[in-house]
């Protein structure tokens, strides 16, 4: 088991014209160690016009993510975010490797713990025996060596936890916060 491994799960939800971000830090078993969330950010009409299409990515990468990481207690080893965020071109500066995790529909790999490189930025990880492998998509800033190291850490953590599930928890927590009581 990867001793002291800390995984940061980052999620931004949009509620109307407001954006709300959350960051969940878990241990290698998926147990929450810290959870931070931002107050809803509502860009003004002028800001929406001036930022245009870059507004949402700027909010995610520069405003929300930086504010959450600054307040987080402890530094994560891996920064995990939704694949949709990564597909949009993740350019934020994070000290640890940034990646997205997805449950794939691929056929299981031959043995538990096997890693298959699909593309230079995409790995298939067999974390549960007999199940479909987990797809790990890395940010463009993560080099191959860092990807291999992250894959090993994920394999170890996947033995004790569902690697994808904490992201759903962050979403649920944020929706709880924005819903009127």
């Amino acid at each position: 088991m990867a001793d002291g491994l800390k995984l940061a799960y980052f999620m931004v939800v949009r509620e109307g014209a407001s954006f709300l971000g959350g960051l969940l830090l878990t241990d290698e078993s998926g147990i929450p160690l810290d959870f931070r969330y931002t107050e809803p950010i509502t860009p003004t009409k002028l800001q929406s016009v001036l930022y245009g299409k870059a507004l949402e990515s700027h909010l995610r990468e520069e405003v929300i993510q930086k504010a959450l990481l600054k307040e987080l207690k402890g530094s994560p080893d891996l920064f995990i975010l939704p694949a949709s965020d990564l597909a949009g071109g993740w350019n934020a500066e994070v000290r640890c490797p940034a990646l997205a995790l997805q449950k794939s529909q691929e056929a299981p790999l031959a043995r538990l713990g096997e890693v298959f490189r699909a593309t230079p930025r995409e790995l298939l990880l067999q974390v549960v025996e007999g199940a479909s492998p987990v797809r790990a998509i890395f940010a463009s800033s993560v080099d191959l060596a860092a990807q291999d190291q992250a894959a090993a850490q994920l394999i170890e953590a996947g033995y004790h936890m569902d690697l994808v599930e904490p992201l759903e928890r962050v979403t649920a927590a944020l929706q709880t916060l924005v819903q009127p009581t």
Binding site: D34, Y37, T38
Partner: peptide
């Protein structure tokens, strides 16, 4: 920068 809250 938005205000950040902690709610473990």
């Amino acid at each position: 920068d938005p205000r950040v809250h902690r709610d473990l």
